[in-house]
């Protein structure tokens, strides 16, 4: 197969600050869904040996920027960053989904208030700490949300919804900013 060019989810680079929140598109590197066959023990070991990451429990994430593994639904995790080691495929399905998801980072003191307008889950720090990662909805879009820092969130939606995600987030950011 020829050398393929990766296309970006947004036609123009997404990078906006409104009030006390900032929205930036992020290039996460490789995205690979890992779905262990049966028990997770084999996958956990292989993931740890190859990438130094733990296989996340439900609603949790492991690792940090550059190499992260987030819980991604029942019996699934998403490996973010490194190209998946071949050994992972011995313990479960290992599927390249780089072209299926769009990713943004929402950060700033008002980020949590912006998300409160769009997401039906309590994302305040008391309930949703660093290292927590959930599957939920942003408006009506199926999404994955991970807290990556004190005031920063990684948000993934299906790539076909990228435009709707940036629109909804920008509107909510403006509405929160308007309240001062």
């Amino acid at each position: 197969m020829g050398e393929l060019q990766a296309a970006r989810p947004w036609a123009e680079r997404l990078d906006v600050s409104i009030g006390r929140s900032a929205l930036v598109e992020v290039d996460l590197g490789h995205l690979t869904v890992l779905a262990p066959f049966g028990a997770e023990a084999g996958m956990t070991e292989a993931l740890s040996a190859a990438h130094g990451l733990g296989f996340p429990k439900p609603n949790r994430a492991t690792g940090k920027d550059g190499g992260r593994c987030i819980w991604f639904g029942r019996g699934e995790a998403l490996l973010i960053g490194p190209a998946p080691d071949a050994s992972l495929a011995d313990h479960g399905a290992s599927v390249d989904v780089l072209d299926a998801w769009a990713a943004v980072s929402l950060s700033g003191a008002a980020a949590v208030d912006v998300l409160a307008r769009l997401v039906p889950v309590d994302l305040r720090e008391g309930a949703f700490k660093r290292g927590h990662s959930i599957r939920t909805q942003v408006m009506h879009m199926s999404a994955s949300i991970t807290r990556t820092g004190k005031d920063s969130f990684l948000i993934l939606v299906f790539r076909s919804m990228a435009g709707t995600l940036s629109h909804d987030l920008k509107q909510a950011m403006a509405a929160v900013a308007a309240r001062g």
């Binding site: 439900p58 609603n59 029942r74 039906p120 889950v121 959930i134 599957r135 939920t136 909805q137």
Partner: peptide, 10 residues
């Protein structure tokens, strides 16, 4: 049982 307490709209 997996995610915890969630809104009906999910």
């Amino acid at each position: 049982p997996i995610c915890g307490d969630r809104d009906r709209r999910e």
